[in-house]
Design a protein around this nucleic acid. Structure first.
Length: 183
DNA sequence: CCCTGATTCGC
DNA sequence: GCGAATCAGG
């Protein structure tokens, strides 16, 4: 992908809207956040309006002495960055920004509801224990309204470590993993 | 560890 | 000009 006038235009717009470089990169597609940042700098768009008290970072890396790894790989200038993976067909690329944020929020909502909805339907080896009946090895997945009288915990064997049984630990941790994968 | 932008420098 | 690698920081 190259920086066509159109793409540069979108970049300017999104950057002005306050989106992060990675978010912009996702919106444009086909570029990394580094590419976006690099372009932003070349366009001299840095400041972004806000009060930039100039954080100041005059540090220089200084390549340091070469390790001289004897029979090391020569070039090694390869990049394991396909980068163009994302970009899953968007209806309109013209109206983004706030819209993008909204979409992201709705996705989070969906995950949250999934997280909360499933456990009430499926029952592992639950014993529906009260809070005081829990031990180190009992699953602490909550069932019902905490303010209700019949509020209980799964109570199934959770094994040596972890607050949840095998079933609920998946429910508890999988959504987060999926969310991460989507990014 | 996740993320952010900033900088350098080989291409 | 481009952007990966790296840096500094939240």
């Amino acid at each position: 992908m190259s920086w066509t006038d159109e793409r540069v235009e979108s970049l300017k717009k999104l950057w002005a809207e306050g989106l992060s470089a990675s978010q912009i990169a996702a919106q444009l597609g086909g570029v990394s956040r580094n590419a976006v940042i690099g372009k932003v700098h070349r366009l001299k768009l840095s400041s972004r309006g806000r009060t930039n008290a100039a954080p100041a970072r005059p540090k220089k890396p200084a390549p340091a002495a070469a390790p001289a790894p004897s029979a090391a790989a020569p070039a090694a200038r390869h990049k394991p960055r396909p980068a163009a993976a994302a970009a899953p067909s968007r209806p309109m690329m013209t109206t983004v920004g706030a819209t993008a944020l909204k979409v992201q929020f709705e996705e989070e909502e969906a995950v949250f509801h999934h997280y909360r909805a499933v456990p009430s339907n499926v029952v592992p080896i639950a014993r529906n224990l009260k809070l005081v009946e829990l031990s180190e090895r009992t699953c602490k997945w909550p069932n019902g309204d905490p303010l209700s009288d019949d509020f209980s915990f799964c109570g199934a064997d959770s094994g040596e470590s972890g607050p949840y049984c095998g079933f609920h630990s998946k429910l508890a941790y999988q959504p987060a993993a999926e969310r991460r994968r989507v990014r």
